[in-house]
Amino acid sequence: MNDVDKRKLIESMIAEVHLHPKETWEAGKNPIKEIKYAFPVSKEVMDALRENVASVETVCLLSKKAQ
């Protein structure tokens, strides 16, 4: 997917974006106050998106040896 297609996809998923007042913006901080999506999003998903912590994922391949 090229950059233009990615942008179109993201734009189609977002209905509205609300920003904090420009006078309150701080360097290194996110100026976005609220994003309203064009589809329903559960509270659990929204809470996970708001977390500002690093996460670690582990992928493990399990196989059974033939005997």
Rank of each mutant, 00 (worst) to 15 (best):
N2Y: 04
V53C: 04
M13V: 01
C60E: 15
A66R: 11
T24G: 00
D47R: 12
M1C: 06
I35C: 10
P40M: 02
A38D: 14
K22R: 12
K36R: 14
R50K: 15
D5P: 00
Y37E: 01
D3A: 15
K6S: 11
M1Q: 07
P40H: 03
E23L: 07
I35D: 08
H18V: 09
K65Q: 08
V53S: 12
A38H: 09
A48K: 13
L61I: 10
I32P: 02
A38P: 01
I32K: 03
E44M: 04
D3W: 09
E23K: 14
T24F: 04
K8F: 07
F39T: 07
V53D: 12
A54Y: 09
E34S: 10
N52C: 06
K29A: 14
K64M: 02
E11A: 13
S12T: 07
E34Y: 06
K33W: 01
P21V: 03
T58N: 08
K36I: 10
A54S: 12
N30V: 07
V53H: 13
M46L: 15
L49P: 02
V45A: 10
W25Q: 05
N2V: 02
W25F: 15
S63P: 00
K36F: 01
F39I: 07
T24R: 08
T58G: 07
A48E: 13
K43R: 11
K65P: 08
K65F: 02
V53T: 14
A15V: 01
S42N: 11
H20G: 00
S42F: 01
E44N: 13
P21M: 07
M1H: 11
S55E: 10
W25Y: 15
V56H: 01
A54W: 08
S12L: 05
A15C: 03
K43C: 00
V56M: 04
H18S: 12
L9V: 05
Y37W: 15
K64I: 05
E11Y: 09
R50V: 02
V59P: 00
I10H: 00
S42Y: 01
K22Q: 11
M46R: 13
K33T: 00
V41E: 00
Q67L: 07
K36C: 01
E34T: 09
A54G: 11
F39E: 06
V41Q: 01
S42P: 11
P21R: 06
P31V: 02
T24L: 08
K65S: 07
K43V: 09
V4I: 13
K64T: 04
D47N: 14
S55I: 10
K64C: 00
N2G: 15
N52R: 13
H18C: 01
N52D: 15
N30E: 10
P40D: 10
K29F: 02
R50C: 09
I14L: 05
L62V: 13
K22D: 04
E34D: 12
D5T: 10
D5F: 06
E51K: 15
M46V: 06
F39P: 05
I14R: 04
M46F: 05
A66W: 08
K64E: 08
D3I: 12
S12E: 12
